[in-house]
Amino acid sequence: MISAVSAGQGLGPLLLALTVTLFAGFVKGAVGFAMPLIMISAFSAFLPPELALAGLILPTLVTNLSQAFRQGIAPAKQTAWTYRRFLIGTVVFIALSAQLFDLIPRVAYLLLLGVPVTAFAALQLAGVPLALRLQHRTRAEWGLGVIGGLYGGVSGIWGPPLLVYLLSINAPKLEAIRAQGVVFLIGAVALLAAHLGTGLANVQTLLFSAALVVPAQIGMGLGYRLQDRLPQARFRRWTQALLVVTGLNLVLQALVA
């Protein structure tokens, strides 16, 4: 039974994956993102790349259902329409880039994710103004959606470009968290569909992924309690700081790979 649930990795890696997912769910509940970033960066240290990616698919899908619809169906639908350009770009390019998963070296995609995310968030923390000009908002939304989709198909992570966009337009806390939930939810459906096609998501890997749903949801519920107490300014700073840490972790993994 343990062998099946752990996709042949054994009890130790399974318990470690459950612990990582619990923490990642808590962070996501608190600030609205970073669960796939935390999971893929930690999983990559002790799991094969294909299992690390497959493992985050179902927890990401389920937790984003909760996040997207926390304020109800109508606000979620409105948010989906508001960020429709980002959503379209993300979904289309997840489907396309998923076909390249086996062709892109792990070091390359870790660096491609880690360097720009770290640079942007560090500059924001340092007080450097990087807000997008309002007249360029539509182009930025399309462009960042495409970038998110390109990353998402090969790494399971498409959040940083959305966070860059939300920080740049100074989106209010509740809108930012709901937008992340909606975009991440639709992206997670696209990622699952794409990798059902590539074969990366199969009975063995999805059983492992399903085992991680429970700790993800428990962590999410605990994180919600903290989120509700965070003022807007502190939420923004925590988001920036967490982006720096996760970006640096990705870069470090690439350098020691």
Rank of each mutant, 00 (worst) to 15 (best):
S41Y: 03
I57V: 13
G25D: 04
A119V: 15
A4R: 10
V203C: 13
L166Q: 07
P231Q: 02
A176D: 09
V189W: 02
G145V: 01
F120S: 14
D102F: 14
Y151A: 09
A80G: 06
A119Y: 13
F23I: 04
L110N: 05
P231M: 05
V146H: 02
G72N: 04
L185R: 12
V117E: 08
Q204C: 03
R178S: 07
I218Y: 09
L196G: 13
Y224E: 12
L103V: 09
L252H: 12
L134K: 15
V62H: 08
Q217D: 02
F235Q: 00
L242M: 14
M1Y: 15
P75A: 07
L134D: 14
K173P: 10
H195C: 11
S155V: 05
V183T: 15
V20H: 08
V91D: 06
T239N: 00
G32I: 02
I2Y: 10
F93G: 00
G199W: 04
L207V: 00
L248S: 07
L123C: 07
I73K: 04
Q99Y: 01
A98M: 04
F33N: 06
A34Y: 15
F86A: 01
T19H: 08
P172C: 09
R85W: 13
L252G: 14
L207P: 04
G219S: 00
A176W: 14
A68K: 03
L226C: 14
V182Q: 07
A95N: 05
G127R: 09
L15V: 02
T118P: 03
V91P: 07
W142H: 07
L230D: 02
A193S: 13
V31E: 03
T239R: 02
V128L: 08
G247H: 00
L230E: 06
Q232D: 13
P116L: 13
A241G: 12
G25L: 00
